[in-house]
């Protein structure tokens, strides 16, 4: 499904999901987060074509034309992707608006969205054949081409490593260490920190497996849920190497450490279980974040 989305536009599969031609809108462009990160995205070279802020249509913000609704944007612009900077209580409305209008890539930055709302828009996205990234994600960045979300620009340079992470700041941490070791990233995707997610590890790994720019993949997981265990099943089939790092080795059981997804329940989702599943599937598991670039340099030397 996702490959078709990319191929239908006649693009070469270099980096995944977004590239230098991706036209992006920002829902919630006039808010504190929305405006700050619109500036950052523009600075990175992302083609931000419009913003949405109900009641503020007609103004120009950060040099970008603002419209009242997504539909109004689509009457005037071609759009490939949207990024949602709308507060949690009303985020569902904004996500549904984008999906209903037919936008194919929806990046949901907002955290603390009620899980019942998330179930509804994830289900609707699936029906509309849209790629939904998040919620509670840092977004997606195809290095040197397009950044949609909130990652700090300076650590993402073009290169051969695909990166997918449940955690934002850990992804930045490891991207920075990789960059310092001379390894840039083809694309870095934030899967999101909530219990339920749009795009999953497996779907993202499949895209990296097919992307000629990506030579190896770094998977950053954490305790709780069974996303890493599920990913392991696919990693077994991959031709490209996967290096994994899992946070939460020292977390006491039954304590929730921030992410809604990071709860250890009934023995499932433990650090040991995840490391075992990943290792058995052939992934190389790093004990510390600093080991990730070391392993990558051995693999890609």
């Amino acid at each position: 499904m996702h490959q078709q989305v990319v191929l239908a536009k006649g693009m070469v599969l270099m980096a995944i999901i977004v590239n230098q031609n991706t036209k992006v809108i920002v829902q919630g462009i006039t808010g504190k987060q929305g405006s700050f990160h619109t500036r950052q995205m523009l600075a990175y070279g992302t083609k931000v074509v419009a913003g949405v802020a109900p009641g503020k249509g007609g103004i120009t913000y950060e040099g970008v034309p603002v419209y009242d609704t997504v539909q109004a944007v689509l009457e005037n612009h071609q759009v490939d992707a949207t990024v949602i900077f709308i507060q949690a209580a009303i985020a569902k409305d904004a996500v549904m608006e984008a999906l209903e209008a037919g936008i194919g890539i929806v990046v949901v930055i907002t955290e603390h969205i009620p899980i019942h709302d998330e179930l509804e828009f994830i289900s609707y996205a699936r029906r509309k054949g849209a790629i939904l990234i998040g919620p509670n994600t840092f977004g997606i960045i195809s290095s040197g081409k397009c950044q949609i979300g909130i990652p700090p620009n300076q650590f993402f340079i073009p290169g051969p490593v695909g990166l997918v992470s449940r955690s934002g700041t850990l992804a930045y941490e490891i991207a920075k260490k990789l960059a310092a070791a001379g390894f840039g990233q083809s694309t870095a995707v934030g899967m999101g920190g909530d219990c339920v997610k749009g795009l999953t590890f497996v779907e993202i790994l499949k895209l990296f497996e097919a992307d000629p720019e990506t030579r190896a993949v770094v998977l950053i997981g954490e305790i709780g849920g069974d996303a890493e265990e599920e990913a392991s099943v696919y990693i077994k089939e991959m031709t490209k190497s996967v290096v994994a790092y899992i946070a939460g080795k020292s977390a006491p059981p039954e304590k929730q450490m921030g992410h809604a997804g990071a709860i250890i329940r009934g023995g499932r989702g433990t650090y040991q279980g995840k490391v075992k599943a990943l290792s058995k599937a052939g992934a190389l598991v790093a004990e510390m974040p600093s080991e990730v670039p070391e392993i990558i340099s051995k693999l890609l030397a």
Binding site: L170, E287, P289
Partner: peptide, 24 residues
């Protein structure tokens, strides 16, 4: 720390070096 992932990782690393975190 900022971010649940890096905060958990921070605790892991402190323990790795022989320290004991007082909190997350």
């Amino acid at each position: 720390a900022n971010g649940a992932g890096i905060a958990m990782s921070t605790l892991d690393i402190l323990l790795h070096y022989g320290g004991t975190p007082a909190n997350f």
